[in-house]
Amino acid sequence: MIAPTEALVAGSFYTFAAIALAGAIGVVLARKVFHSALFLVLTLASLAATFVILGADFLGAVQIVIYVGAITVLILFGIMLTPRNVELPESSGVGRSTAGVFVAAAVFIVSTTVIVTSQWPRSMSTPIPDRPTTEAIGQGLFTTYALPFEMASILLLIAMIGAIVIAREEQ
C-alpha cells in the first residue's frame, strides 16, 4: 500500500528502542511495584514494535499475546495478592545498590565493547529480505525443532503442576 522510506523505518526503530529503554529504566527505578509493572507493559509493547521492524512479524504478535497479554496479567495478579509490598521500603543497602549498578555497568561496557569492536562478517551488514515469517517458523518448528517443541510442552506441564502445588492454599 504505502511505501515508507527506509529513514522512516529506522526512525521508528530508534523511537521504539528509546521507549523500551525508558520503560526498562522505569521498571527498575519505580517506587511502587505496580508502577514497575506498568512500565514493563510499555517496554514489552514497544519491543514488539522493534521486533516487527527487525522483520519478525509473527514474533511481534506473539510478544503482545504472551508477554503483554499473559505474563503481565500474571504479574499484576501476583502484585495484588501480595498487598503489603506497597509498604516495603525499597532501597536496599547503599553497598548493595552500588555493587548492583557496578555489575550492570560492567556487563554493559564489556558487551558494548565486544559489539562495537568485533569484526562482524561482511555478510552480516545487510538484512535478509523482509518477508512474512509465520510459515517459515511453522516449518522449522515441526521439522528441525520438533523435539524442542515437545520439550516446551513438558516444560509448561511441569511449570503448571509445580506452580499449582506451590500456590495452592491447603484447606
Binding site: A20, L21, A24, I25, V27, V28, T43, S92, R96, S97, A99, G100, V101, V103, A104, A105, V107, F108, S111
Partner: peptide, 11 residues
Amino acid sequence: LFSIGIAGALT
C-alpha cells in the same frame, strides 16, 4: 536492556 535488567535484579 540486559544490563538494566541486571541492575534491577541486583538492587
